[in-house]
Amino acid sequence: MSLSLKTARPVPVRLSPMTSYLLTRIRQSLITLVLVSMVVFAGIRALPGDPALALAGEERSPAALAAIRADYGLDDNIAVQYGRFIGHAITGDLGTSSRTGLPVADAITAALPVTLELAALSLLLAVVVGIGAGIVAAVRRGRPEEWLANALALLGLSVPTFWLGMVLVLGFAIALPVFSASGYVPFAADPPDNLRRMVLPAVVLGSGLAAVVMRQTRAAMLDSLSADYVRTARAKGLSRREVIGTHALRNSLVTVVTVLGLQLGHLISGAVVTEQIFVLPGFGKLTIDAVFTRDYATLQGVVLCTSAAYILINLLVDVAYSLIDPRIRLGGAR
């Protein structure tokens, strides 16, 4: 690079490749979030029914309806309405639930920790069991361990969530009451009791993901174990542990993280069913209740939050990629 050019142009701030990559990804995520909010907003407006009619109750004279529309800003331009919605959403005001009469934001804040904990525990389970079993299946290829891991994965993939939930409740909450089958106690209030109640839901929600992760890990590990750089690692005299754990696994993680990212979305939707089974007051339950009672404001808030979560997860997955694979971070081929 020539440095001798005498120009008056200010020197641009040099960002590290990682920082500029992050900034790009965050910018993209924000744009996506804005687009999503538009779709959510428009989607709700496209639903059949007139909010003014619903609000008016018995008094349905045109004058009363017009007054309500003016009052709620419903006769404003749609763009103006959207602007108002976003303005409120940014300050944390997502409207009022028509079912409970309470702020939607409060309902979401109450439900969020439950679902987050459930998702985090399921994810932990899926990562630990899935990656562990995947490594074992690849390393012990053609031996009983691989058969066992494959059989478990097939089971995890094919058993429906609700059925697994019921069987686990029968087994570990009723016949052998180790865990509790229903209700939620905040972790901060009573950690052991919280875990006693969360283990079964986490197993139910995480088993499918664990199976997918196991299969991907196994396939990716088989690939990397036959790669030239693993041969190099062996030629260096590295221990089996280093060859598998450092050289093969690190390369396999790119694939596994991709799958995890795609599947995390399923965790959120899977939580809806799981929360119903175990009567957990989380996001899933909030969504279902909102759907059944036509609670549009709550639904809108829930969908917006879920979408934001998806976008955030995608961002995190991309960051994880670049931490694992320098070729993504530093922009290179091969």
């Binding site: 030239d228 750089y229 190099t232 450092t246 690190r250 390369n251 320098p326 091969r334």
Partner: peptide
């Protein structure tokens, strides 16, 4: 080209 580990 392939004998070195790409992520280290």
């Amino acid at each position: 080209m392939t004998s070195l580990n790409p992520v280290l």
